[in-house]
Write a protein that binds this DNA or RNA. Structure first.
Length: 270
DNA sequence: ACCACAACCTGGCCGC
DNA sequence: TGCGGCCAGGTTGTGG
């Protein structure tokens, strides 16, 4: 589910709930969610460790431990992290429980089991293929242009490629392409310099607006505080199939690109 | 190197 | 109520 704005919201809301707390025990109920190391060693290494820092890279959450190691969590489609009182019992979708010295427990819950968790000495081992952070000051139109140059995949597929740009997913790709007035079927390498610059600006605008709305809450998704985000109210095209474009009134179209639902205005985006 | 697509999983919704 | 089909905010592995 979550893209950059949802993960950033997660980090902001979980940080005060976890910083300074220490892990005093844990249980893994679905071993495959622990990517590195083996689950038994994972639990051995994390027991007794304190959370010292909390950050984000792309759609990954990075929790720095007092051992110098980093706990990395990727929620993929349906992962959730909650810090709960000890009285809250895990349900059948809770795959990792970490007991904290505060008496609470961290629950990692994930109905589709796509999410992954790593415990590594060097985060680069997990993150090295990621492209630039779109909201960093140093991210320039040329950085995006270099990633798209010569590519013959659709611009929609390339925006979803985390090695070109980190953090954009299906919602924000569609919204950015609408804002930049670019047809999602256009090939990456055929965009003009002006279009690349417009897309660069649009990606930053929609991600920033997403963060300000505390993410998009579709279905039952909500950030750790439990209060839903609001950016879904600002979607211009995403899941607005057959509804009128807010600019020109043309019905929004849904097509499939890169195996993902893609929504666009056939009049505004060409 | 690049591209398209199956696979990984479960649950919700819709029509019959 | 049950069943089949489709949908879901992501990434990885495989084959061409």
């Amino acid at each position: 589910m979550p893209e950059l704005p949802e993960v950033e919201t997660y980090v902001r809301e979980l940080r005060p709930q976890l910083l300074g707390k220490r892990v005093v025990g844990g249980e893994v109920h679905w071993p495959r969610i622990i990517a590195i190391p083996e689950p038994d060693l994972f639990l051995e290494l994390i027991r007794g460790r304190r959370f010292d820092s909390f950050g984000r890279r792309g759609k990954y959450m990075l929790l720095g431990l007092d051992s110098g190691e980093t706990l990395i969590i990727h929620l993929r489609m349906t992962g959730e992290v909650r810090v709960q009182p000890a009285t809250v019992e895990p349900d059948k979708h809770t795959h990792l429980l970490l007991a904290l010295d505060s008496g609470e427990r961290l629950h990692y819950r994930d109905p589709r089991k796509f999410g992954r968790i790593w415990l590594v000495g060097d985060p680069a081992d997990v993150l090295r293929k990621l492209g630039p952070e779109p909201l960093e000051d140093g991210f320039a139109p040329d950085d995006l242009g270099r990633g798209l140059a010569g590519r013959t995949a659709s611009i929609k597929a390339l925006l979803l490629d985390q090695s070109i740009l980190a953090g954009v997913g299906n919602i924000y790709a569609d919204e950015a392409l609408f804002l930049a007035r670019i047809d999602p079927r256009r090939l990456g390498g055929e965009l003009s310099g002006d279009q690349v610059a417009a897309l660069h600006g649009a990606v930053r605008t929609v991600l920033q607006a997403g963060i300000e709305g505390r993410g998009s809450s579709l279905q039952n998704y909500a950030p750790p505080s439990g209060e839903k985000g609001s950016f879904q109210e600002e979607h211009r095209v995403f899941r607005r199939t057959d509804q009128p474009c807010y600019i020109c009134g043309t019905p929004i179209r849904r097509i499939v690109l890169a195996q993902r639902s893609t929504h666009f205005c056939p009049t505004c985006q060409s």
